[in-house]
Simulated scan of single mutants.
Amino acid sequence: MRILHLAPPADAHNGIADYARHWRDAMQGSGAELVCPPLDAGLPPLLEALDQHRIEWIHAELGGGRVAEFEALRQLRQLRPELGFGATVHDPERLIWRAAQLPGSLAWLAACPGPMPQLAGLLDHRRVLRMERRLARQLDALVCMTRRGSEALARRMQLAAGLSYTIAHGNISVPPRPLPPGPLRLLYFGYIYPGKGIEDLLQALAGLRAKGGDQAMSVRLTLAGGTAPDIAFGARGSYVQSLRQQIHRHQLDHVVDWQTDVPGTEIIELIQAHHVMVLPYRESRKLAWLGQMRSTSGALAWATACGRGAIVSDARAFAEEISHGNGCQFRHRDPADLQRRLETLTAQPSLAGEWARHAGQLAVERQWPRIAEQYMTTFTQALQRRHHD
Rank of each mutant, 00 (worst) to 15 (best):
I3H: 04
H5V: 04
H5A: 09
I16E: 03
A17H: 02
R24E: 13
R24W: 01
M27I: 00
G29I: 03
G31S: 08
V35F: 03
P37I: 04
P44C: 14
L47R: 14
E48Q: 13
H53N: 13
A60H: 07
E71P: 04
E71Q: 12
E71R: 12
L73C: 03
R80H: 12
L83I: 05
G84V: 12
R94P: 05
L95C: 02
I96W: 11
I96Y: 05
A111M: 06
L123W: 12
R134M: 09
M145A: 06
A152T: 00
R155H: 15
R156Q: 11
Q158S: 11
I167C: 08
H169N: 14
G170W: 01
G170F: 05
V174W: 02
L179R: 08
P183M: 10
L187F: 07
Y188T: 10
G190F: 15
Y191S: 14
I192P: 10
Y193F: 15
K196S: 12
L201Q: 13
L202F: 13
L202A: 09
L205R: 12
L208T: 09
R209E: 06
A210Q: 14
G212Y: 13
G213P: 12
S218F: 00
A224T: 12
G225W: 13
P229S: 09
G234L: 09
G237W: 04
V240G: 02
Q241Y: 12
I247H: 09
R249E: 15
H250C: 10
L252Q: 06
H254M: 01
V255Y: 05
V255S: 08
V256L: 09
Q259P: 00
T260M: 12
P263K: 02
I267H: 00
I267T: 09
I268W: 01
Q272H: 06
A273E: 09
Y281E: 06
M293N: 15
R294Y: 03
G298T: 09
T304E: 13
G309A: 09
S313Y: 07
A315H: 01
E320W: 04
G327H: 08
H332I: 01
D334M: 05
L338M: 07
L342R: 05
A352W: 03
E354N: 11
A356I: 10
H358S: 14
G360D: 08
R370Y: 12
A372T: 05
F379I: 14
H387M: 07
H387V: 04
